[in-house]
Simulated assay, not measured.
Amino acid sequence: MIYVVGLGPGGAGEITPRALAALEKCDLIVGYKAYVELARPLFDKEKEFVVSAMKQERDRCEEALRLSLSGRTVGLISSGDPGIYGMAGIMLEVARGRTEVEIIPGITAASSSAAILGAPLGCDFAVISLSDLLTPWKVIEGRLRAAALADFVICIYNPASHGRPEHLSRAADILMEILPAERPAGWVRSAGRKGESCRVTTLGELKNQKIDMFCTVIIGSSATYVIDGRLVTPRGYRE
Rank of each mutant, 00 (worst) to 15 (best):
I2C: 11
V5N: 00
V5M: 06
G6Y: 01
L7F: 04
G8Y: 03
G8L: 03
P9S: 08
G10M: 05
A12G: 06
E14G: 01
I15V: 15
I15Q: 00
R18V: 14
A22E: 02
L23T: 11
C26L: 11
L28D: 04
L28I: 13
I29H: 04
K33P: 00
V36I: 15
E37W: 10
R40E: 15
P41K: 01
L42Y: 12
D44S: 14
E48I: 13
F49S: 14
F49E: 09
S52H: 14
R58G: 09
R58N: 11
R58L: 13
R58C: 03
R60I: 06
C61E: 10
E62A: 07
E62P: 12
E63W: 04
A64M: 10
L65I: 09
R66E: 15
R66G: 11
G71R: 12
R72V: 10
V74K: 04
V74H: 06
I77S: 02
S78I: 09
S79H: 07
S79Y: 11
S79T: 14
G80R: 00
G80C: 09
D81I: 05
I84L: 15
Y85D: 11
G86Q: 09
I90R: 09
I90G: 07
E93Y: 11
E93K: 12
E93F: 10
V94K: 09
A95E: 10
A95V: 15
T99F: 00
I103A: 00
P105T: 11
G106A: 06
A109L: 13
A115S: 15
L121H: 08
D124F: 05
V127D: 00
L130K: 03
L133Y: 06
L133I: 11
T135L: 10
P136L: 05
K138Q: 15
K138I: 12
V139S: 09
V139W: 11
E141G: 05
L144S: 07
R145D: 05
A146M: 12
A147R: 00
L149V: 13
Y157W: 07
P159V: 12
A160Y: 05
G163S: 13
E166H: 13
H167W: 10
A171D: 01
A172G: 02
I174M: 07
I174A: 12
M176P: 08
A181R: 06
A185G: 14
R189P: 00
S190Q: 07
A191E: 02
G195I: 01
R199I: 00
G204C: 09
E205F: 03
K207R: 15
N208W: 08
I211E: 01
I211Q: 01
D212E: 11
C215T: 07
V217F: 05
I218M: 08
S222W: 07
S222M: 07
T224E: 02
R230W: 00
P234M: 10
E239H: 08
E239P: 14
